[in-house]
Amino acid sequence: MTGLVTYGLRAFGLKAALVLAGLASAPAQAQQTDILALGDSLTQGYGLIEQEGFVPQLREWLAERGHDVRVVNAGVSGDTTAGGLSRVEWSLTPEIDAMIVALGGNDLLRGIAPEVARANLDGILQVAAERDLAVLLIGLTAPGNYGAAYKRDFDAMYPELAEEYDAVYLDDFFAGLRGPDGGMPDAARFMQPDGIHPDATGVARIVETVGPKVEELIERADTQAGSDGG
């Protein structure tokens, strides 16, 4: 009996050692990436039930592609770039690894000067840079009704700031609704009755375009985290 007990203990010890060795050699599980989506009603999901909004659809799109990502909805309906700047500091809680910035639509609707909007976006990107956070900056295209100079300056601020801060960049939040020639002849089919906010199908098309950029953002966030840790 004593021999059997001794054998059993040895066998148990061997199994435990093998289990521990297996755990030690197993690849580390990828950590969750926490992303703040700082935006306005387009980010918030205005006029849609929760699961149809931009952030929930983006979460689902990323999950389907194997990403362990938490996207925090920091979209506030009616917010301008000034509003985003005023709340970015406290919105960036310690666990946030990266940020999506999608602001400027309400600046356009109010005719706010491009240089003012640019200064606000610059301030938001400065905060992210100070915290060493990867950023995806999503632009918008101004209509022509404010004049050629306004359109030129507004459209230019996004790519110029993205280059200055080395941000991941998408030129237009509505890029997914554009046709092959860059026009939007059928965009009305994907909009709510107000003609400003996309419906659920429109959001899905937008996410298909934004999603790959967010994957690039995740990769950059992971790289920066590895550099900080190393």
Rank of each mutant, 00 (worst) to 15 (best):
A63S: 13
L136P: 06
E89G: 01
V101E: 00
Q51R: 15
L121A: 07
S91A: 14
L125E: 05
A98D: 07
G53P: 00
I112R: 06
A129L: 11
G144L: 12
Y46W: 11
L109P: 04
I100N: 07
L109N: 10
E95S: 15
L85S: 07
M99I: 14
A128Q: 10
N120C: 10
R118T: 01
A119T: 09
R118S: 07
D122L: 01
P114T: 03
A148K: 10
V76K: 10
L58S: 06
H67A: 12
S86H: 14
E50Y: 14
I100G: 06
E89W: 11
G66Q: 12
R110A: 06
P56C: 04
K151F: 10
S77N: 15
W61D: 10
G53T: 03
Q44T: 00
W90G: 03
G83P: 07
T80K: 11
L92F: 10
D107F: 08
T43G: 07
T81N: 06
G78V: 04
A98Y: 11
S91D: 14
R110E: 03
A148R: 12
R118M: 07
V69E: 07
A82I: 02
V71R: 04
V127M: 09
L58G: 05
R118D: 02
Q44Y: 13
G104D: 05
W90D: 10
Q57Y: 02
R131C: 07
T141E: 11
R118G: 08
L58T: 05
D68G: 05
D97T: 10
F54P: 02
Q51K: 15
M99K: 02
L125M: 13
W61C: 04
